[in-house]
């Protein structure tokens, strides 16, 4: 059986009908464990105090903010090449989840940055890149909303996603370049994976797992909704044709 057989909407609906709630439950369990462990059973950082614990929201959200875009890119490519409707709808479904993750990452970052750096916002390359990513999401979602014909919308947003991906990567490098140029050495980089100790690391892993399950569950849920909307749309068309 090929993986493409899941591109059949009926099959997709059947499989995800049970998978989605299961993933949702898994996400809930993992997040309760991960966040509970992280918030209440890890020591405060000797320098950062309790604020370090926001890491359990911040890092997974940031991770899936980027992964969501990557997923949209792959789904767009599949739509453009193989014309599977589920793929186009999955790309559409992932965008709002992605922008929500981006916003969570930005807001938690600001909340973290305030006590640490004494400012809500700094034009650090990472922060700036996320802000740009957020703008790309906005444009992508706006284009989906603006076009009535679903296939046209899927085609145009896919092209936008492809071009946007190239420019997103380009912007990332441009921002690095720009920031270095502006204030040398004043880096506020927070490369957590490298310097966080084991005691923080394991709950973080659980949280990332929880976010992964949550992300997949949300995307599946939204894709299912989109498929239903499309079916409704098709039914309306039939009705219109039957009336006329």
């Amino acid at each position: 059986m090929s993986i493409w057989s899941f591109a059949n909407p009926t099959r997709f609906m059947a499989v995800t009908a049970r998978l989605t709630p299961a993933l949702g439950a898994l996400a809930a369990v993992l997040l309760v464990i991960g966040l509970g462990w992280g918030f209440f059973f890890t020591p405060d950082d000797y320098r950062q105090g309790a604020t370090v614990k926001i890491i359990y929201l911040h890092v997974p959200a940031a991770l899936f903010a980027i992964n969501a875009w990557f997923m949209m890119l792959v789904a767009s490519l599949i739509w453009l090449i193989r014309r599977h409707h589920v793929s186009a709808l999955a790309a559409r479904a992932a965008a709002p989840v992605g922008i929500t993750m981006t916003l969570i990452a930005l807001v938690t970052g600001a909340v973290w940055g305030q006590p640490m750096w004494g400012t809500w916002w700094a034009w650090d390359p990472r922060l700036t890149s996320f802000l740009i990513l957020c703008l790309f999401y906005v444009g992508y979602i706006a284009l989906w909303e603006a076009i009535e014909d679903p296939d046209t919308a899927a085609d145009l947003t896919s092209v936008l996603c492809l071009v946007g991906s190239v420019f997103a990567v380009l912007s990332r490098y441009a921002v690095n370049f720009w920031n270095q140029g502006l204030h040398q050495g004043a880096s506020l980089s927070l490369d957590t994976e490298e310097n966080v100790a084991d005691v923080f690391y394991y709950p973080l892993l659980v949280c990332i797992g929880g976010f992964a399950a949550l992300f997949v569950a949300l995307v599946l849920l939204r894709t299912r909704t989109e498929i239903r909307v499309r079916r409704l749309h098709a039914l309306r068309l039939r009705e219109r044709m039957a009336d006329a």
Partner: peptide, 11 residues
């Protein structure tokens, strides 16, 4: 749509 794409050029 276009303004975010302008960022690298502007930088």
């Amino acid at each position: 749509l276009v303004l975010p794409l302008y960022i690298p050029t502007l930088v």
